[in-house]
């Protein structure tokens, strides 16, 4: 083995938790390392590991200290990181691209006009910019199935609402600063709402309750209100299967 171990820190998180930090920035490369380490720990099923929670640039590992000692766990993780070194950051098997239909504006996107005005763009331009690139799911959090997305164009960045709304409908797509995202369940929030998806990214009680996984890419597909209601009916009836493709990372922008 050549070279040195990539930079990482292990931090305590209670008597049965530890945090492995692989950097201190939001970047697809650091996040890919996080995802890969999480997958490895899960696949290796180390005795005593309870759960791994990957985020932007670190992982929280819950473990049973009577089953595996902290030092043994740290050593096992170190070995994984060491053997990870030198691997291509891009996974050979490709990445998932989830197509998310969105009806922009109108009652579904009450802030679309504001976003356009704020950025001196037409409504159509905002929709085109928002739906023209793929977004990386860095992690899920906040509420079940909520994706933290990266990659939005600065051209449509808009500050949050000064006063958050008490209730944002399920499926709402919004912008907050330079971030975009969508609400899998009804929740309070201060995002500028630009549209709504008829999909249900969180469906408890079904075989696949979570539509998104960290490491996926999302692509927003503009649809009409008629299409929205049509897809929504199928989603509610359990007939709709979302368009999910696996593509190589190089092909992601023109899948």
């Amino acid at each position: 083995m050549t070279g040195r171990l990539p930079e990482f820190r292990v931090l305590p998180a209670g008597e049965r938790g530890l945090v492995v930090e692989l950097g201190n920035l939001i970047s697809p490369e650091v996040n890919a390392r996080v995802q890969r380490l999480a997958r490895r720990i899960n696949q290796k099923s180390i005795a005593g590991v309870i759960e791994v929670v990957p985020t932007y640039r670190s992982l929280l590992v819950y473990f049973d200290p009577f089953n595996i000692s902290r030092s043994d766990l740290v050593e096992a993780i170190q070995q994984m990181l060491a053997s990870d070194e030198g691997l291509e950051v891009v996974e050979k098997e490709g990445v998932r691209v989830v197509h998310v239909p969105v009806c922009y504006g109108g009652e579904f996107g009450p802030d679309l006009e504001y976003v356009a005005q704020h950025n001196r763009l037409s409504i159509e331009e905002v929709i085109t910019i928002h739906s023209s690139r793929p977004y990386l799911v860095y992690m899920l959090g906040f509420t079940p199935g909520f994706p933290y997305l990266g990659g939005m164009s600065d051209k449509i960045a808009t500050p949050r609402l000064e006063k958050p709304r008490a209730k944002i409908p399920q499926g709402s797509v919004g912008i907050a600063g330079a971030q975009t995202g969508l609400y899998p369940i009804e929740s309070p929030g201060g995002w500028r709402l630009i549209g709504r998806t008829p999909l249900r990214p969180f469906l408890p009680g079904t075989a696949n309750p979570f539509l998104f996984d960290a490491g996926d890419y999302l692509r927003f597909i503009p649809i009409s209100p008629e299409e929205y209601h049509h897809i929504r009916r199928d989603v509610e009836a359990g007939f709709f299967s979302p368009d999910i493709r696996t593509v190589s990372l190089e092909d992601i922008s023109d899948d």
Binding site: A13, N24, I26, L60
Partner: peptide, 10 residues
Amino acid sequence: IISDALPEGA
């Protein structure tokens, strides 16, 4: 911080 996981009892 850059948002990360919240341990039990944090």
